[in-house]
């Protein structure tokens, strides 16, 4: 007879280790920006990220930019030493992939959505649009970039049943100016929810507009990460100490507004603070 209470916990079946995957397809998205497609044995949701491992180089969190069946993708720009090495890979080469991690966007936050993507944050937004449209939601996409050659997924957007508004800083494509101007107009339609991912000053401006218009808002926030599984603490954000990898990446307006560091500063791998 067992009269001692037994305490158990369900251990996740998945091991948090990179799995070797073969690159199936590489797509040139824009100047210096590519998508890498590979087969993944897990279901990803928009707002989640994968850890991508290049042995001897490093491992970085990267937003999931699509998933269709087992075929998933990440999109990245060749900016640092890691992504430059990633860009040297060819179809058929292997890399390590671990995850997905993070709390995703709530797809049931309403019937009509406005998505605001800036720069590489558009990777998260295009995947979110895929998932929202699959649930028959009304989607308006606003995406911004420095200039025409940096705009992402223009062909993919064309094939999607939604309105897409492009904004470039130099006016080389779409309207000239910031995404916030386009958002102002889109808000006249009174959408149920705004979702955003991109540079933090942009997201902060979007958050402010959403709060002023009293429209629900979800933001995917990024911070430096090491482990991705809630242990190392690199991505803990002030003042709550919430882990972007675990309690994030997606925060609703109220939780995001409580983050004193949001839009102001971030920390690097040694936890040293840097202002935006």
């Amino acid at each position: 007879m067992h009269d001692i209470p037994s305490f158990s916990f369900s251990r996740p079946a998945r091991l948090e280790q990179p799995q070797a995957v073969r690159i199936e397809q590489i797509v040139d998205e824009a100047k210096n920006i590519k998508s890498f497609y590979f087969s993944l044995d897990a279901d990803c949701k928009a707002g989640q990220f994968l850890m991508v491992w290049l042995p001897g180089v490093g491992m970085k969190p990267m937003a999931v930019s699509s998933q269709s069946g087992k075929l998933a993708s990440i999109t990245t720009a060749a900016v640092g030493s890691f992504s430059k090495r990633l860009f040297e890979l060819k179809v058929g080469d292997r890399m390590g992939v671990q995850g997905p991690y993070g709390k995703p966007f709530d797809l049931d936050a309403g019937k009509s959505f406005v998505l605001v993507g800036g720069g590489y944050g558009t990777a998260t937004m295009v995947f979110l649009a895929d998932q929202l449209l699959a649930k028959n939601k009304k989607v308006t996409m606003i995406c911004g970039a420095r200039s025409k050659e940096y705009l992402l997924y223009t062909d993919r957007f064309k094939a999607m049943k939604m309105e897409t508004l492009y904004c470039t800083d130099d006016g080389s494509f779409g309207r000239k100016g910031f995404v916030t101007q386009a958002l102002k107009e889109a808000l006249k339609e009174k959408p149920d929810c705004i979702c955003t991912c991109g540079p933090e000053p942009m997201m902060k401006a979007v958050l402010g507009m959403a709060q002023e218009a009293k429209i629900r808002c979800q933001l995917s926030i990024e911070r430096y990460m090491k482990c991705g599984i809630g242990i190392c603490g690199s991505c803990c954000i002030d003042p709550t100490g919430e882990r972007i990898c675990t309690e994030g990446t997606v925060f609703d307006a109220k939780r995001a507004a409580a983050l004193t560091e949001f839009g102001r500063y971030h920390r690097d791998g040694s936890a040293t603070r840097h202002d935006f």
């Binding site: 091991l15 850890m51 491992m59 482990c227 242990i231 190392c232 690199s234 040694s270």
Partner: peptide, 23 residues
């Protein structure tokens, strides 16, 4: 500290080499 990967799991626990990253 060490470059990533720094923390992974296996069937019976965790393996880590973070390398004292701190400011």
């Amino acid at each position: 500290g060490f470059a990533n990967p720094t923390i992974i799991t296996f069937e019976a626990g965790m393996l880590n080499a973070v390398g004292y990253s701190n400011p």
